[in-house]
Design a protein around this nucleic acid. Structure first.
Length: 473
RNA sequence: GGAGGAGUGGCCGAGUGGUUGAAGGCAGCGGUUUUGAAAACCGCCGAACCCGUGAGGGUUCCAGGGGUUCGAAUCCCCUCUCCUCCUCCA
């Protein structure tokens, strides 16, 4: 994705830091250059076996590049050292030039010698640029290390159910799914959604639209007034840098919709290329990117409603019926930035905030811990909340709450000072859906359906729908 | 979309090719003084990477990228952002 050509004329230290630790991001959000790796290169090289063991739990693919990375890291160190030594030499000699007679023979002689030195440095740094380019590509593609508490597994069947809340609603009739219910009630229009846009797009109508809007307000209100979150309303489009920060790029470009142009090699110009954000995690987590947060400002909790856009590449034929898997859906997201010591506890807290929404709505669900095979690329540890859908006779994911450790913070340069004057440290990031609104609507339709096809409105939601108690045709 | 202007350290702001990571000021931190506070004075006060057990040494960063040059914050090109005017528009 990124060209080593873009950096190979820079100095060794600049290249090194740009690639591997401190991508300067502010003020150039559309630039095609490079974010740092998610795993600290030092960690990888100093504890290669430990990293191999931990990453290997995700499967063999996760560790395939480790030996190559190790070799490249050694080259990197060597070439940086040589390049910097040459630069030091040139700096000294160059300073002396200032006091020489510019017309004299000695000046000309030294200038020619320095020109040769300059070419040598350039060649060395071109080579270093290639090493760093490959290294960065490989390291950026390494997923996060799973937390020791994450169970081993080969697939979602190995996720561990932690607890269930509530009971499956008892029906004295055959429960229908939300597609039948919503279509009959005239509140979900799948056909016209497909007509005006395409498959996996739906029009909500009447009480359906109202419920969607009500759920958004209800969730935001709970998080802001009861759970201590600050509300945000971010842009729906994001740049590539932000997506690298949270880990969607470079590996998962195919999952994203994008607009605009990008780098044009023909004239070395760059143009705007933006992506439709797949989750507010991107906007909100990157909100403080490249900043050093003041002492005492953690933990920070933000919540935001956003539309989310996913191409669902590779999911052809999966969940084609109904609202479950749309190209565009609505979600209220929670994000937490905290000190490293607090990460574990914050995950429990944040998951509880998502659960509180389900409980207030009276929706039966269960909490599961994802196993190594199901753990997301950036995640260190994840709990999913799965709501009961009688129409499918299944539990389906409605929230995913993750602790990322410093993985995202390293990519996005999210740092803080524990106290005034202290060295900056990477924060820990967490986020969770609180909740996916469309799936919440699905759960309400299916769990609250009545024999006559009408839907009882959960009491907590009634103030948001003008006191409406029941949705009828 | 058209025409101009601008982008320097937490903030303001010097600096148009050579001991400038960058004057000066503000803010912040430490100290002197004070019953305490303020004021005054003194000192400290960015980040990252490489080498080193350490002390310490080195390299880089003036929106971002590329180029010219022995040498670039300073010159050239591209991109981004902000401001002003015009145009358009929810």
């Amino acid at each position: 994705m990124t060209g080593s050509a873009a950096v190979d004329r820079k100095s060794a230290a600049t290249i090194a830091s740009t690639h591997l630790a401190q991508p300067v991001r502010m003020g150039r959000p559309y630039h095609h250059a490079i974010a740092p790796p998610m795993l600290d290169l030092k960690t990888v090289t100093e504890d290669l076996d430990g990293v191999r063991a931990a990453l290997g739990r995700r499967g063999p693919g996760a560790i395939a590049s480790l030996d190559r990375i190790d070799a490249l890291a050694a080259q990197r160190r060597d070439q940086i050292a040589r390049s910097e030594a040459l630069r030091a030499e040139r700096n000294d000699a160059s300073k002396a030039m200032a006091s020489l007679d510019k017309k004299g023979p000695e000046f000309a002689e030294r200038r020619d010698a320095l020109k040769r030195l300059g070419n040598e440095i350039k060649a060395l740094e071109d080579s270093l640029g290639q090493v760093l380019g490959e290294l960065e590509e490989l390291v950026m593609a390494l997923p996060n290390l799973p937390d020791p508490s994450v169970p081993d597994g080969a697939g979602e069947d190995d996720n561990v159910v932690l607890r269930t809340w509530g009971d499956k609603p008892a029906f004295d009739f055959e429960p229908r799914d939300h597609v039948d219910l919503g279509t009959a009630l005239g509140i979900l229009d799948f056909e016209r959604g497909a007509k005006i846009t395409g498959s996996r797009f739906t029009v909500l109508r009447g009480a359906g639209a109202r419920l969607e809007r009500a759920l958004m307000s209800f969730m935001l209100d709970m998080h802001t007034t009861e759970h201590g979150y600050e509300e945000m309303w971010p842009p729906a489009l994001v740049n590539a840098n932000s997506l690298r920060g949270t880990g969607q790029l470079p590996k998962f470009e195919d999952d994203l919709f994008h607009v605009g142009r990008q780098y044009d090699e023909a004239d070395d110009s760059e143009h705007v290329r933006l992506y439709l954000s797949p989750t507010a995690e991107v906007q909100i987590t990157n909100y403080h990117a490249d900043e050093i947060l003041e002492p005492g400002s953690l933990p920070r909790r933000y919540t935001a409603y956003t539309p989310c856009f996913r191409s669902e590449a590779g999911n052809y034929g999966k969940d084609t019926r109904g609202l479950i898997r749309q190209h565009q859906f609505d979600k209220v997201e929670m994000v937490c930035l905290c000190a490293p010591e607090e990460g574990v506890a914050q995950l429990e807290l944040l998951t509880g905030h998502a659960e509180a929404i389900l409980q207030r709505l009276g929706l039966h669900y269960r909490a599961v811990q994802l196993c190594t095979a199901d753990l997301g690329f950036s995640s260190h540890k994840t709990y999913d909340l799965e709501v009961w859908l009688p129409g499918q006779d299944k539990y389906r994911e409605i929230s995913s709450c993750s602790w990322f450790g410093d993985f995202q913070a390293r990519r996005a340069r999210l740092r803080y000072r524990a106290e005034v004057g202290a060295k900056p440290r990477l924060v820990h990031t967490l986020n969770g859906s609180g909740l996916a609104i469309g799936r919440t609507l699905v759960a309400i339709l299916e769990q609250y359906q009545q024999a006559d096809g009408s839907i009882r409105v959960p009491e907590a939601l009634r103030p948001y729908v003008g006191g409406l108690e029941r949705v009828t045709p």
